[in-house]
Simulated scan of single mutants.
Amino acid sequence: MSYYTGAIAAVPAANKQKYAEHVAAAWQLFKSYGALRLVETWGVDVPRGKVTDFYSAVDARDEEAIVFSWIEWPDKASADASWEKMQNDPAMKDMPEMPFDGSRMIFGGFSPVYEAGRHSGAGYYQGFLLAVPEKNKAAYTEMADEGWKMFKKGGATGMIENWGVDVPHGQKTDFYRASKAEENEVPVFSWAAWPDRKTCDAAAKAMEADMGDMDLSKMPFDGMRMMWAGFEPLFDSEDAA
């Protein structure tokens, strides 16, 4: 089963092109370590939240944009081995200087608990981050299936829900603080793929009407702490192949 390294970062908007060049170079290294795919998306519709949001997740500055990205690996063992290789790889010294503050980037290892549709060729992504009680894993997976039915009806091409299995605690930022995770809660990093933003926005309005009478108390997680945003593809290794 595939395994994902998920990451969220804040990048100065002025450095968008430099960031794209940086990740293109990084992909060559990840590919040599066995990675299957790298996708980097640039925030274009990132709302401010009352409890949590992507800006606070990475302590973003006013002039910074949010980047939502993931690396796909064949399995966790391959991902773990790659990080070991990276520590001692001389090629790391030749990498372009990071055009953002890496100390505020949050990242972790995630395993899919639900996947439907396809993710290739998407013109727009919705990214989600939340914390789910560990005991509610099965209930969350069942809810994801119901969610996919609504997303698919609205025109989504794919959806994936990833459960945190190797999520480190950071000194400045991390997935736990970003989602205000409580004891025995697990970070969930997920996304839905859409053909374009117009389709996604139209579906969102329709779903808001359908969910108007939903009893939020029955959700298997605290929806007030879930954050979501819209992202456009910046780099996809499938396109760069």
Rank of each mutant, 00 (worst) to 15 (best):
Tyr3Arg: 01
Thr5Ala: 11
Gly6Phe: 15
Gly6Glu: 13
Ala7Thr: 14
Val11His: 03
Ala14Asn: 09
Lys16Arg: 12
Gln17Val: 00
Gln17Ala: 07
Lys18Ala: 08
Lys18Glu: 12
Tyr19Glu: 14
Tyr19Leu: 08
Val23Tyr: 06
Ala24Val: 01
Ala25Leu: 11
Ala25Met: 04
Leu29Gly: 09
Leu29Asp: 13
Ser32Gly: 00
Gly34Asp: 09
Gly34Met: 05
Ala35Met: 04
Leu36Thr: 08
Leu36Lys: 03
Leu38Phe: 15
Val39Trp: 03
Val39Glu: 07
Val39His: 02
Glu40Arg: 04
Glu40Thr: 00
Glu40Gly: 01
Thr41Tyr: 01
Trp42His: 07
Trp42Val: 11
Asp45Val: 00
Asp45Met: 03
Val46His: 01
Pro47Asn: 14
Arg48Thr: 04
Gly49Asn: 02
Lys50Thr: 03
Val51Asp: 02
Thr52Arg: 15
Thr52Pro: 06
Asp53Arg: 02
Phe54Tyr: 08
Tyr55Val: 04
Ser56Lys: 12
Ala57Pro: 01
Ala57Trp: 04
Ala57Met: 04
Ala60Asn: 03
Ala60Met: 01
Arg61Phe: 11
Asp62Ser: 15
Val67Leu: 08
Phe68His: 09
Trp70Glu: 10
Trp70Lys: 03
Trp73Lys: 10
Trp73Leu: 07
Trp73Pro: 12
Pro74Trp: 00
Lys76Phe: 14
Ala77Trp: 06
Ala77Arg: 05
Ser78Thr: 15
Ala79Arg: 13
Ala79Ser: 11
Ala81Thr: 15
Ser82Val: 11
Glu84Gly: 14
Lys85Thr: 13
Gln87Cys: 08
Pro90Thr: 02
Ala91Cys: 08
Met92Val: 13
Met92Glu: 09
Lys93Ile: 11
Met95Thr: 07
Met95Cys: 08
Pro96Arg: 04
Glu97Thr: 04
Glu97Asn: 05
Met98Cys: 11
Met98Pro: 10
Phe100Ala: 09
Gly102Tyr: 07
Ser103Val: 01
Phe107Leu: 13
Gly108Pro: 09
Gly109Leu: 01
Ser111Arg: 13
Val113Leu: 04
Val113His: 05
Tyr114Asn: 05
Tyr114Lys: 07
Gly117Leu: 02
Gly121Trp: 07
Gly121Tyr: 04
Leu130Lys: 00
Leu130Met: 10
Ala131Cys: 05
Pro133Val: 05
Glu134Thr: 12
Lys135Leu: 06
Asn136Tyr: 09
